[in-house]
């Protein structure tokens, strides 16, 4: 019956060994420098991050740029190679592993237009005919044109609803704020060792 204990101790031992190696050790190595970094995420963008998580954007959009010489992320203008400090202060992480759509690490640099983002969220095919991104009409309110002073979306004619305005909700605005905060404009300081 000696085998029982060998089996159990062996399994737990190998498991804990790897768990230490892949979860605790990275924490020890990565976190100190990230904590020092001077990165802030302001209120609305943090709200938008929640909306981003809630609608599962991660399943089609990554937020990690691979370095030069590995893939063509940088040549595509998706930004510079990502580093740990880019993700400070936002949890859950949204690195993503799928690019059905383009990487968003640096989307605010490529497309700074708020209107465009709102149109694109309302229905991506208003601005990109062949897009396969799902529409998010539920982030918008459709109200009678004469009952609101707010400005509606400037939709192309075939998407306009006569007598109605399409008004983005707070959620939609927060999400766009978040997208417009995804900006790698500031060069990253070289990390110290």
């Amino acid at each position: 019956m000696i085998k029982n204990s060998i089996l159990i101790i062996g399994i737990i031992g190998l498991f804990v060994f790897a768990m230490f190696g892949l979860t605790i050790l990275p924490k020890i190595y990565i976190e100190p420098n990230v904590e020092k970094a001077d990165v802030y995420v302001w209120g609305r963008a943090a709200e938008g991050h929640k909306v981003y998580v809630s609608h599962g954007c991660i399943y089609c959009h990554s937020q990690q740029v691979r370095p030069k010489g590995f893939g063509a992320d940088i040549e595509r203008g998706w930004g510079r190679a990502s580093v740990a400090t880019d993700y400070k202060g936002l949890t859950p992480h949204q690195l993503g592993t799928m690019r059905t759509g383009p990487d968003l690490s640096n989307i605010a640099q490529r497309q700074p237009g708020r209107d465009w983002h709102l149109l694109h969220l309302y229905n991506p095919r208003t601005v990109i005919k062949e897009s396969i991104m799902p529409p998010y009409p539920f982030l918008f309110e459709i109200v009678d044109a004469d009952k609101t002073l707010k400005e509606g979306l400037k939709l192309p004619p075939e998407y306009q609803i006569p007598g109605k305005k399409v008004i983005p909700t707070d959620e939609a605005n927060a999400l766009v704020d978040y997208l417009l905060s995804l900006n790698q404009k500031d060069p990253i300081k070289p990390q110290q060792n």
């Binding site: 203008g77 005919k129 192309p156």
Partner: peptide, 21 residues
């Protein structure tokens, strides 16, 4: 290269833009 990265999403690949916008 710049056009492909930054302009196509509005003005489109063929430069035709989006009607009304």
């Amino acid at each position: 290269k710049v056009y492909r990265q930054r302009c196509v999403s509005c003005h489109q690949e063929n430069g035709q833009g989006v009607e009304g916008a």
